[in-house]
Design a protein around this nucleic acid. Structure first.
Lengths: 175, 175
DNA sequence: AGTATCGGCGATTATTCTTCGGCAGAAAGG
DNA sequence: CCTTTCTGCCGAAGAATAATCGCCGATACT
C-alpha cells in the first residue's frame, strides 16, 4: 500500500514532485505556450502523451495557473507604465482600496515591507489617466501619500521563470 | 488604387485599427489563451475563421506579443517576491547591469524617473538568494545603493489588460 | 519472489486549426 | 447613379493536433 494513503484519506494533497522533466516543460511553456505537445516532447525528451499527462498534472497542482496572451501596452493605447507606492496610516488593505483593482489599468497590487505599504503596477493611456488613478488612491481613507515611479524604458518584462539559480556566482560584497 | 499604396511601397506599416471586436478578442485571450477559436467567436459574435484571421493580424502587428503559461512562483520553489530599486551614479544602463537579466529570478527591469534609476522585479527561493542577487547588483560599477521592497501578499498579478478606462469616476482631490 | 503502483509509449479517435472559394457591404471613380 | 475594387465575414473541406486507451517495463513494498 502506498505510504501516503493516510494523507489522501484526510484530504491532504501531498506536494507533487517537480522533476527535471517538469522543469524543462514549464520553462518551455513559459517561453511559448502555443507549441504542440509533440514539439515539447521532442524538446524535453518525452513522447507527446507523456507531456500531455505531465501538463495536466502541473495544471491541476497549481504550478501552471493559466495561459495568457501577452499584449503590447503601447499598441493598445496604454504607453505609460508606472509603479505607485502608497503610504497608509494603519493597515493598508481596505475594502475601499481593493475596488481600484477593477480598473484594467491596474496590473499588480502587493503589500510590501519597506517604507511603503502597498505597491501598484499600473499602465495608463496618458499622464492624465495616471493622475486620475492617483486621485482614486488618494480618495481612499487612510492613505497619507503616494510616490510614483514612471518607467522610461522597459528592458525586460517576462512571466515567472521556471529556473532557479542554485549556485550564485561568488562575488565579494564591496567593502 | 488603395490610398496607402505609397506607405506600403516605402515599407511603412500603417497603424492597424483595433476595433471593438479586436478589443474583446484581446481581452478574452489575455484572460485565457487556451480556448478555441469557436468559443472565442461565440463570445465576441464572430465565426471561428474570422477570429482566426483577426488574431493572425493582431499577432503580426505586434499587439499580441506571445502566449505564455503563468507559473506559480511558490510551487516552483521561489516564494519570495521583491522589487529592488537601484540608485546609480551617472547613467544606469550599463553592459554589466544587463548581465543580471540572465538570472531566471529577474522578471522585470525598467529604468524609471523618480528617486531611483533602475527598478527590478525579482522572485527568489529565499532571502539568501535575494541577498546574492543584491550582491550582484552592488558589484556593478556605478551603483551607489539599493532599496528593496519585499512583497508580503500579492492581491493582484495579471498580464496587460486590453481595456482602457476612458471616463474615470469624477472625484475631487483631497484639499 | 510476488505483487501492486506508477509512469511512459504507441495507436486510435475526437477536436481543433487552417485554408479555400464565394458573397455581401463599403469606398473610390466614372 | 452605376460600376469597379477592395475588404472582411461566412460555410465547408482537409490537415494537424489534442485527448484517450490499453499495454508494457521499472520501482517499491510485502
Amino acid at each position: 500500500m502506498a505510504k501516503n494513503t493516510d494523507d489522501l484519506r484526510q484530504g491532504r494533497r501531498q506536494q507533487p514532485v517537480i522533476d527535471a522533466f517538469d522543469r524543462r516543460i514549464l520553462a518551455a511553456l513559459a517561453a511559448d505556450s502555443s507549441q504542440s505537445y509533440a514539439r515539447l516532447g521532442e524538446a524535453v525528451g518525452l513522447s507527446a502523451p507523456a507531456v500531455h499527462e505531465r501538463v495536466r498534472r502541473l495544471r491541476q497542482s497549481g504550478a501552471i495557473k493559466g495561459v495568457h496572451a501577452a499584449l503590447d501596452g503601447a499598441a493598445l493605447g496604454k504607453p505609460l507604465l508606472a509603479f505607485v507606492h502608497v503610504e497608509a496610516a494603519g493597515w493598508g488593505k481596505s475594502e475601499r482600496l481593493m475596488q481600484v483593482l477593477q480598473f484594467p489599468e491596474v496590473e499588480e497590487m502587493h503589500s510590501v515591507a519597506g517604507d511603503a505599504s502597498v505597491l501598484f503596477k499600473v499602465r495608463t493611456a496618458s499622464p492624465q489617466a495616471l493622475e486620475a488613478f492617483l486621485a482614486q488612491i488618494h480618495a481612499v481613507p487612510g492613505v497619507t501619500g503616494t510616490r510614483s515611479y514612471i518607467a522610461l524604458s522597459t528592458y525586460l518584462e517576462r512571466p515567472v521563470q521556471a529556473g532557479v539559480t542554485d549556485s550564485w556566482p561568488h562575488m565579494p560584497l564591496p567593502e
